[in-house]
Amino acid sequence: MLRSTTITCAIALFGTLFAAHAAAQVDGTLVRHKGVTVDAGDLNEELGLLEQEKRQRIISEANELQSTVTGLYFRKRMSQLAESQGLLADAEVQAALRQAREATLAKLMTDRYLEDIDYPSFEEEARRYYEEHLSEFTPPERIRAAHIFLQAPKTEDKKRRRGEAEKILKRLRKGKSFSELAKKHSEDSTRHTGGDLGFFTRERMAPEFNEVAFSMKEKGAVSDVVETRFGLHIVKLLDRDLGEPKAFEAVSEQIKERLKAEYRRENFSAWLKQEVPPEVVRLPDARLQALQDALAERYAVRIPEAEASADAESTQVQSTEAAKP
């Protein structure tokens, strides 16, 4: 954490010291100081390695561009100082440089492979996927309903107010306006809209409410009194939206991108198994255990006993299985 903070402060300091030298040129020298030069070629090389979005941000914002030039000078100057102090001869530095080189080349190689994959058009595959997975492109069923709601969260409340709800229901059966009775009797905010709950899916309401509301078939139908944990409801079905599937044309590109991603994963996985065969790089359990023990001793790492016992037991079981005729 301290090293990261120190580097950040150092870069900020260099930005102040050398801002005057980093003239906004597209060619030639940008900064020259203490035998270190940053030129337009260095900047172009740096920008060329970035994703387009980040590159665009740096170029379009002067502070970001200046920070990039400052960072280039910082890296070059620190590298110069490190070499002058003989750090390149240090074994740990050599190991770190080798690891960085291998990691960079590994990433570039995998990126290059993925970029060079030749994809089919997926036209027929997309159509077939659409037809076989139509439910994925069909919005869930929705209904529009209204209710008259009497608050009764406790069992005794429900018993006490049941008769009140039944009287309202009788008036509805005799032709009284649902909307007017909801405005008069309902005990939630929907009373202002005649009990109208709008359109909703099954996930939105209480299970007992959904069971009744979604089972109603005819618009205008009114339910019996329904009990939920909130209280007592009388439900009226106002409308139903069965959820029509989206047209293939509206989702074809989405499907193709999904198929392309799957094709890429399968292609890359097959290539990776060929270049890095699991059976080749996997060490035998006994060899892995011996290596683990040796490294733990060398680096003073304590292996938890439970984990060590489990590993030992696994190795013993596998050895026993292997010894069977």
Rank of each mutant, 00 (worst) to 15 (best):
T155I: 10
D157F: 14
K158T: 09
K159S: 15
K159P: 01
K159F: 15
R160N: 10
R160D: 13
R162A: 15
R162G: 07
G163R: 13
G163E: 15
E164N: 03
E166A: 02
E166S: 04
E166P: 01
K167A: 12
K167Q: 11
I168L: 09
K170P: 00
L172Y: 04
L172H: 04
K176L: 01
F178N: 01
S179L: 06
S179I: 08
S179H: 08
L181S: 03
L181Q: 06
K183R: 13
K184S: 09
H185E: 14
E187L: 09
E187W: 12
D188W: 04
T190K: 03
T190E: 04
T190G: 00
R191K: 14
R191V: 08
H192S: 10
H192C: 01
H192Y: 13
H192P: 01
L197N: 13
F199K: 07
F200H: 12
R202A: 10
E203R: 13
R204D: 11
M205C: 02
P207S: 10
P207H: 01
E208S: 14
N210W: 00
N210C: 09
A213F: 06
A213V: 03
F214M: 05
S215N: 15
S215M: 07
S215T: 08
S215W: 05
M216Y: 01
M216L: 13
K217S: 10
K217F: 10
E218R: 13
K219M: 07
G220A: 05
G220K: 08
G220T: 08
S223V: 04
V225P: 05
V225N: 04
V225R: 02
V225A: 06
E227P: 07
E227R: 13
T228R: 02
T228N: 02
T228D: 06
R229M: 02
L232M: 11
H233F: 00
I234V: 15
K236S: 02
L237P: 02
L238V: 10
R240L: 06
R240S: 05
D241R: 11
G243P: 13
G243S: 06
G243L: 07
G243E: 11
E244C: 00
P245I: 01
F248Q: 02
F248A: 01
E249M: 06
A250Y: 08
A250M: 11
V251T: 01
S252L: 03
S252H: 12
Q254I: 07
Q254N: 09
Q254T: 14
E257D: 15
L259T: 00
L259D: 00
R265H: 04
R265G: 00
N267W: 12
S269P: 02
A270P: 00
L272C: 02
K273M: 06
K273Q: 13
K273C: 07
